[in-house]
Amino acid sequence: MSIIKLTGINKIYRTNEIETQALENVNLEVEKGEFLSIMGPSGCGKSTLLNIIGLLDKATSGTIELCGTEAMTLKDKELAEFRNHRLGFIFQSFHLVNSLNVIDNVELPLLYRNVSAGERTRLAKEVLERVGLSHRMRHMPMQLSGGQCQRVAIARALIGNPDIILADEPTGNLDSKMGAEVMDLLRQLNREDDRTIVMVTHNEEQARTTSRTIRFFDGRQVE
């Protein structure tokens, strides 16, 4: 059964003078437990596609079905709830809240789910232990290395126990050693938890380690 199903997705950016087709008639199905990597040159629409799958952006046309839910029709509150419960995001530039320490950053998704403070802390500790950062819980993001920041972001994506993890070039800002560590962690999550992961990457080697790779060029799926 497909956990992600995109049908006829088009995305057009319009300004006063220019119209740019970022995605053209994209049809994609991702099975539960699959680790899909999306590759292609810069500006080909990979991140746009990931944002549309993650409901962070709106498609100009087409339909998106996630976990059996028709996502295009959801209202703001339902969308927020859907993202909170079903999706986990990992960004290239981490997007941690610099004014909160590690454990508070990780707890954030549960805060919006109205989970009690004690339960939030317990789950955050558990997930930080899993990503190997239990000794950095009280550190501020500025005091961490890039790899550690990305682990915090992974922990934040994991804490809500989402069905789908969406990673936009998660190793793009890391050196090769740290990148490899992060990839190991993602593979482990996919293997052990049977979690569906969709990852945008430029790295051919990393893509080879995933269960399927699709390629984009000029907004079209070419492979």
Binding site: G54, A80, E81, R83, N84, H85, H95, Y112
Partner: peptide
């Protein structure tokens, strides 16, 4: 943007 991506509504 981040808050919305992790489940905060506009309200």
């Amino acid at each position: 943007g981040l808050m919305r991506s992790i489940g905060a509504s506009q309200a």
